[in-house]
Structure formats: C-alpha cells, structure tokens
Write a protein that binds this DNA or RNA. Structure first.
Lengths: 160, 160
DNA sequence: CGCCAAACTATGCAACTGCATAGAACAAGG
DNA sequence: CCTTGTTCTATGCAGTTGCATAGTTTGGCG
C-alpha cells in the first residue's frame, strides 16, 4: 500500500500518508525527539533544553532572538526557558554593553559540563537511527535537507 | 566549516550543528510545521488538527490510541484535542460495540470537507519545499526516512 | 464464576506555551 | 535635543500540555 506517488498531487490531492515526505519526516523527527526527551528526563531536562545547550555550545555568546532562530523556539518561550535555565545555573544572561536591548546568553561551566554529559545520549539516538545508511548517503541526505531549508526560507533571507 | 563529519563521533562527539542530520531535520520540520500552522490559523486550526484530519482521512474509523500513534500525539493530549474537535463538529466519537473500552473516532462530513479545503495549503507548502528535487530523489529520501523509522522503532514492533 | 492483571480513555493538577503587547534602548531626521 | 519609528526582551493572560492516575472494561486462569 505504499505506492510511489509522492508528487502526484496535481489532480488528486488525496495523500496516502505513508507516501508523503513531510509526514514521514514529521513522524521520524517526532519519534527521535520523543526518545531523546525520555532519556533526558532523568536529568530533569527536556528536548528543548538540549537544543538550547547544543546551539549555545556551537555559537557561544548568542542573543535571545538569534538563539530563538537557531534553536527554532519562539522568542517568548525561549525567554522564559532561559530564565529557568539561568536559575538552575546552566546559562548566564547579561546585558550587552554595545546595545542594552540585547541580552547575551552563554553557557556556564555547569551548563557546558552538563552538555558534555548528555551528548552521548543524543549521539546514541542518532547512530541507532542511521544504522544501515552509508556515510555517503547521509551526506546526500543532509544536502537534501539544506536544499529544502533554503526553499522554505531558512537560508538567510527570512520571508514573511 | 561544514566538513563531512556526520559519523565521526567516535572520539570527539563535538557536533557542528550544521553537520548533524538530526539538527537539520529538526530545523526543517519545525519550519515546515510552523509555516503550515500560520496558514491554518485563519481557520482556527493548528498543525495538530491538520495531522489528526490527515490521519483520519487515510485511516477512517480509528481508535484514540491508534490515532495517537499514527499522528504522533500523546494520548492524553489527543483525547482532549478530539473532545474539542468533536464540539466543533469535525469528528465523531463513539464507543465500540466490540470492546467498550475503545472509542472509535471518525470524520464528520464537515470535518472531511474542511480537510479537503486545507489540503491545498499543505500541498503548497510541500511543493515549495521540494523545489529542485527530482521525483527520483524524493523517492530515495522517503526510502531513507522509512529505513530510519524502522531503526527507531516505528516499523511495527514497538520497543520500550 | 470469581479474581487478578492488562488494556484503554479521560481527567486533576501543575507547568508550560504563545500571541499580543508593554517597556526599554537605539537610530535617524529635523 | 526632541520626536518618531524600529529593534529587542519580558510578561499578562488565556489556553494547552503531559505526567500520573482514576475509572472502566476485557481477558485469562484457577
């Protein structure tokens, strides 16, 4: 029941779910996130925490709105999430001296070490997911993802 | 700075975000969903509604927990979402005569026509995303997604 | 037939979410 | 220097979420 009909929406837009790329991607990503979330719960963390920690590790010293963009978390939500993470000593927020409107966020040593601690959980999840895929195929997958990101407005010039 | 290092987590698990497949997938899916969500808001719908409608269209007459599995929505959340959708006349819930524990859910005509009405929005979003990808490549992408789903426990035999 | 474990849905409660917006800081032009 | 428009973060409020669990129905076994 999984015919190849991915682009045949022209006249008959009745989607067989298993043949729709967005559905497949959604299901897969949701599952991946949920699995990781379950693993993180023991440390009182959520998947959103993970994303913030990961982004901050890569882009140390970000601002709230840049971080929101990178972590794909609504700004208002992130603002309060960061407040909570600050209370737990995972991040430090400080006013920028260049521009007092900006709030610079960075990991504390505690936040960094916590990140190091949980990276293996994410890696484990990731490796389980890509079993059977060759590195070359993964490269190709990532290229396709980047291509689609550009198509949808994540390439640098934000749309509406 | 985007070297091909997707699987080089062996000794140095320091992920450059843009080189991590899960991160790319998350960003892309989040953006897709958010875009669709924005389009749906005018009709007082959310992306979750969309998923429920889509799954119900494909698998008419489902139960709450099966639907939760297919739509990747926690059962408790779905239960209340369905209650609201029921009040709006989009779905109908009825006790199964085979097993009184089960609640069978199906679309009402109103729900079905609403779905038909919003399908184009999703298709539009989808087509924009895959611009530049050949049908053959999309097929390949979906195959990879299914492979990864199986790896993560969505193939039929649920893990934990 | 009665009892215990399992399956399924709904709900209490505390927490989180996001939209809209207030509040504060900057930038540009008169 | 003041005014006006823009950029950025935080918050009020109403709604939603999810964990844990209660309540109900089944199935299996003695």
């Amino acid at each position: 029941m999984s015919v190849s009909r991915a682009l045949a929406h022209d006249v008959e837009p009745l989607p067989l779910l298993d043949d729709l790329l967005p559905y497949l991607m959604n299901r897969l990503v949701s599952r991946l996130n949920r699995n990781l979330d379950a693993k993180l719960r023991r440390r009182r963390l959520t998947f959103e925490h993970w994303r913030v920690l990961a982004v901050l590790t890569a882009h140390d010293r970000s601002t709230v709105s840049v971080l929101a963009e990178l972590a794909v978390i609504p700004q208002a939500t992130l603002s309060r999430l960061l407040a909570r993470m600050g209370e737990r000593g995972l991040v430090r927020r400080s006013m920028s001296r260049r521009d007092s409107r900006l709030v610079e966020v960075r990991l504390t040593p505690k936040g960094r070490s916590l990140y190091e601690e949980i990276v293996p959980l994410a890696v484990e999840e990731y490796r389980a997911a890509v079993v059977g895929l060759r590195p070359q195929e993964i490269e190709w997958l990532m290229a396709a993802m980047r291509r689609m990101q550009d198509n949808v407005g994540l390439g640098g010039s934000g749309p509406s």
